[in-house]
């Protein structure tokens, strides 16, 4: 089901689900953790061998893969932990301060 929590901050005790059940599946994606990031990963398409190490290591499933190939990072959920850059065997991923990007600062 879809769970409308637009006004949840105003709900009375009776309006919450009994036992604090979350009646909607997979809604963790609504919680954007991209704001935790002070550095963002950038992938060099030329160097990338599509080994998918970054995809397997990413703790936030923020490496987006289509047809078996890395296509992008999900910056709404990437926390900037840098594990992808550390594990990349060909140094195709580098971390850059958020301030270098538009909307960073």
């Amino acid at each position: 089901m879809t769970w409308d929590i637009k006004d949840i901050q105003k709900w009375s005790p009776e309006e919450h689900e009994l036992g604090a059940v979350i009646p909607e599946a997979g809604n963790a994606t609504l919680y954007k953790t991209g704001g935790w990031r002070s550095e963002r990963p950038v992938r060099d398409e030329e160097k990338c061998t599509q080994c998918l190490f970054c995809y397997f290591y990413c703790p936030d499933t923020a490496v987006l893969v289509e047809d078996g190939k890395v296509v992008a990072f999900d910056y709404d959920h990437c926390k900037g932990c840098g594990v992808c850059a550390t594990e990349c065997p060909v140094d195709a991923i580098t971390m850059h301060p958020e301030t270098e990007f538009e909307g960073g600062c």
């Binding site: 949840i8 005790p13 919450h16 009994l18 604090a20 059940v21 979350i22 009646p23 599946a25 997979g26």
Partner: peptide, 30 residues
Amino acid sequence: TYPNLLNTDEPMTFGPFDGLHGFYFEHKIA
């Protein structure tokens, strides 16, 4: 019948974390 952990047609989360800015207080009142 009430929300059922094993109902795969309507998957739900049971026993989630509810921290400082959440609704623990309201659940206790309930």
